[in-house]
Design a protein around this nucleic acid. Structure first.
Length: 306
RNA sequence: GCCGAGAUAGCUCAGUGGUAGAGCGCGGCCCUGAAAAGGCCGGCGUGGGGGGUCCGAUUCCCUCUCUCGGCA
């Protein structure tokens, strides 16, 4: 029996994924599932460069605007939501087409998430308090005693991962390093095609800077002003642009400085994305050069699929 | 033309008679319930050119070039 097909299109921010994805989706009866940790929030349109409604009419997009920015969202919720949509699409005879740049999210879809150890507010509160009082080294030593393997992988300064590992241990009595081995991915069941878009670093940075300029022209400042009037969830508040414009709103620096910071932080982010994708050997790479249109690139991808 | 200040990393600059640092920038990497987050690593340099003093000069002296400011 023929395996069902799932497609991924990955790449750093501003490289042009969305336009290419829509063109490809039209050729193959696919619907797009956003693979982006920030585009799930309503009201963060300019900030996250979401595709507009005209484009969404061409091809249905999922997991955009699914929660309020006051709500928290995370990998586990994403996985649950995305897999649900995947199944719906299969029933409709459509191909699920994941498009985005959040490395953790796509890998969780493909490779799975170890089960059922959700975040625990009270345990985290305690651990965070210990972190403040005694520092990350104290927690790190604690972790090393119960889960040497995890400790080996985590840097002593990486307090977030130390806390999560301890949280899992305290909740289940099992080391996270053991649980992590029990992930169930999509691997064997489906035919998975992963495409990655690649662009020379200098050009990518230029595109990022230009995109940020465009965001300002489209009204980024007002959008963020509107957003921060309400309390943003911890996760939504992480979007690049919130903190940077916050400093401007507080009078810490001029608007131009906020722009500079947004551009720089976006470049750093893109670099981290590249580094994440680089060593996934399953990715089929497509090099972009500036003369190609998104239609041409979509055609190239389409040929590789058939 | 004269006077003064300066010329050190991609940028802004610090410092020292024993071949150099800081911030920013940049590069590399890690990643399993906060991931646009968080963490780690890396100085990336013919110290403006030439000459002199000295065991030794980026540091002291001379000279040239250039830049900036002031006076003409």
């Amino acid at each position: 029996m023929l395996k069902k097909k799932i497609i991924f299109l990955l790449g750093p921010t501003a490289i042009g994924k969305s336009a290419i994805a829509i063109k490809l989706a039209k050729k193959i009866k696919a619907e797009i599932i956003s693979c982006d940790s920030m585009q799930v929030y309503r009201g963060m349109d300019i900030l996250t460069s979401k595709v507009d409604s005209a484009q969404r009419k061409k091809i249905r997009h999922h997991l955009l605007d699914v929660i309020a920015p006051s709500q928290e969202y995370n990998v586990a919720k994403y996985r649950r939501d995305a897999l649900l949509i995947c199944n719906e699409l299969f029933l409709k005879g459509k191909i699920p087409f994941f498009v985005g740049g959040t490395g953790l999210y796509y890998s969780i879809i493909i490779d799975g998430l170890f089960p059922k150890v959700s975040k625990d507010r009270s345990i985290r509160a305690k651990l965070n308090k210990a972190l403040q009082l005694k520092g990350s080294r104290y927690l790190y030593k604690k972790l090393a005693r119960v889960d040497a393997q995890a400790a080996k992988k985590i840097h002593p300064h990486d307090s977030r991962r130390i806390i999560r590992a301890l949280e899992v241990y305290l909740k289940t009595g099992k080391p996270i390093s053991v649980l992590q081995k029990s992930r169930v991915g999509l691997g064997d069941e489906y035919e998975i095609n992963i495409f990655g878009l690649n662009l020379n670093r200098e050009l990518l940075y230029k595109k990022i800077d230009q995109r940020v300029d465009k965001m300002f022209k489209l009204g980024l400042v007002n959008e963020v002003k509107r957003l921060v009037k309400y309390r943003l969830s911890k996760t939504a508040a992480q979007a690049i642009g919130i903190r940077e414009l916050g400093g401007y709103f507080n009078g810490e620096y001029a608007l131009e400085e906020a722009r500079r910071l947004i551009q720089r932080n976006s470049r750093h982010y893109a670099k981290r994305q590249c580094s994440w994708f680089k060593n996934d050997k399953r990715i089929m790479w497509i090099n972009i050069n500036k003369t190609q249109t998104s239609a041409q690139i979509a055609l190239k991808l389409w040929k590789k699929l058939s």
